[in-house]
């Protein structure tokens, strides 16, 4: 479904990703953890070419992403949920959800709206369809962003620290939606610090440090006996 082969990424002199190899299976829930600056966000951003690797290859459903084909491939296969939500402030909630389906997937307006309401129901925000995003709390905005991702009908959803910018009391409402989502046959790649979520949802956890994948395994492996000292140190800090 997603495959990274020897992916390297540098920003100027900063070598952020170092030979990252990773495969994500269809329907898999993959959680990426690691200290800040370890390259975990850059890794997911390489998966939809928001960052184009300096070297190496990225495959989505067997097709290699290139600068030329990325827009087309991304449009049909992946969606992303951002730390800062990135809803379109000049559009209502409903318009945020229907814009891409109408303009890109050429879905008729009525059908796109029907789909939008369906996903607003799933995230519990049907009554907010007509308001502008700036009137919503952070947690609500993120739930709308998740609904927007679902409206693309993409089989892969990438989450880049979806709860890091939220007030503590709204984190759970977003996690609940993501947990609900995890029961669907959607491939989820989630960068997060929420270990409870990882334990509950992840099929596999990856620990990144200094631009490399240092350790990977089941959530149980990580929480019960991580191999590397670096992983242990990180987890002990974050689990406290």
């Amino acid at each position: 479904m997603i495959k990274l082969v020897n992916v390297n990424k540098s920003f100027g002199n900063l070598h952020v990703l170092k030979d990252v190899n990773l495969e994500v299976a269809e329907g898999e829930k993959l959680v990426i953890i690691g200290p800040s600056g370890s390259g975990k966000s850059t890794t997911v951003r390489c998966m939809n070419f928001l960052e184009e690797p300096t070297s190496g290859e990225v495959y989505i459903n067997g097709t290699q992403l290139t600068h030329k084909n990325k827009t087309e491939i991304i449009r049909n296969s992946t969606a992303m949920v951002f730390q800062q939500f990135n809803l379109y402030p000049h559009k209502t909630v409903l318009q945020n959800l229907t814009l891409a389906p109408i303009k890109l997937q050429k879905v008729p307006k009525a059908e796109a709206e029907e789909l939008a309401y369906k996903y607003l129901d799933i995230v519990g925000l049907r009554e907010k369809a007509g308001v502008y995003p700036s009137t919503l709390s952070g947690g609500q905005q993120q739930r709308v962003a998740i609904a927007r991702a679902l409206c693309s009908r993409a089989k892969i959803i990438l989450f880049d620290e979806p709860t890091s910018a939220l007030d503590p009391e709204t984190v759970q409402e977003v996690l609940d939606v993501m947990i609900k989502l995890s029961q669907e046959n959607i491939t989820m790649v989630v960068v997060t610090h929420e270990m409870g979520f990882a334990r509950q949802v992840a099929d596999r956890v990856i620990f990144m440090d200094d631009g490399r994948i240092l350790e990977e395994g089941s959530p149980e492996h990580f929480f019960e006996n991580p191999t590397h000292d670096r992983t242990k140190a990180f987890l002990s800090k974050i689990l406290k």
Partner: peptide
């Protein structure tokens, strides 16, 4: 306009022109 707006549009598969005109 914040960079996140461009990234959201790109992640949805909007072309450059669509991103500018619609978003």
């Amino acid at each position: 306009i914040p960079k996140g707006q461009f990234e959201a549009a790109q992640s949805q598969g909007f072309t450059y022109i669509q991103t500018m005109m619609l978003i």
